[in-house]
């Protein structure tokens, strides 16, 4: 697979090839060459199957890391392609013309992270969060617990506690926070 890494590096500036398993590798690309690289992988290298696409909020670095997982059934190999985009200006090229189901993933990323994919069908429509008015909920700076406490009233008689904390207090009282 190193030949593929060399070709991707020469054509698209790909870097950081890492073999996670014999049948799975990861690689990093620049976001502005992402769509071309994915099209090349699909058409020229046999990675024709898009398993899924998602994002990770790397808030410490101020970026969203996009995750595209492709599979070549002929080679029996999967490739995870990463690309960082600026958290303040999260816009990236749409790949809905490459794979016919990709727009659903992009619609999800728009709703969950606020990442925009201009031109992607129905990208601004609500996906799973109907009537949601809060910030994109998968961002790391969205605290779901604080949101719930602020939004919903306490129900009397329903005390809750974090089981992990409870077990630590029970088993290791000296070490519990």
């Amino acid at each position: 697979m190193n030949e593929l890494a060399t070709r991707l590096a020469a054509r698209y500036g790909a870097r950081g090839w890492h073999d996670q398993r014999a049948d799975l590798a990861t690689i990093v690309l620049d976001a502005d060459r992402l769509r071309d690289a994915l099209a090349y992988l699909r058409d020229q290298e046999g990675y024709r199957h898009l398993s899924f696409a998602t994002a990770i909020d790397n808030i410490e670095r101020g970026v969203f890391t996009l995750v595209y997982t492709l599979r070549s059934h002929d080679k029996g190999h999967s490739l995870i392609v990463h690309a960082d985009i600026d958290r303040q200006k999260p816009v990236v090229d749409s790949i809905h013309l490459l794979w016919a189901q990709a727009w659903t993933y992009q619609r999800e990323m728009k709703e969950w992270y606020g990442i925009d994919f201009p031109g992607s069908p129905r990208v601004d429509e609500e996906f799973v969060l109907e009537g949601w008015e809060g910030p994109p909920m998968m961002r790391r700076d969205f605290d779901s617990l604080a949101y719930s406490d602020a939004t919903y009233a306490e129900r009397p008689g329903r005390a809750t506690s974090d089981p992990a904390r409870h077990m630590k207090e029970q088993l290791y009282p000296e070490a519990a926070e």
Binding site: F52, V67, T69
Partner: peptide, 16 residues
Amino acid sequence: ETYVAAECTRGEYGFY
């Protein structure tokens, strides 16, 4: 990071 997939009744089921 890793991605583990399995063949479920409906096709490729995976966890990243």
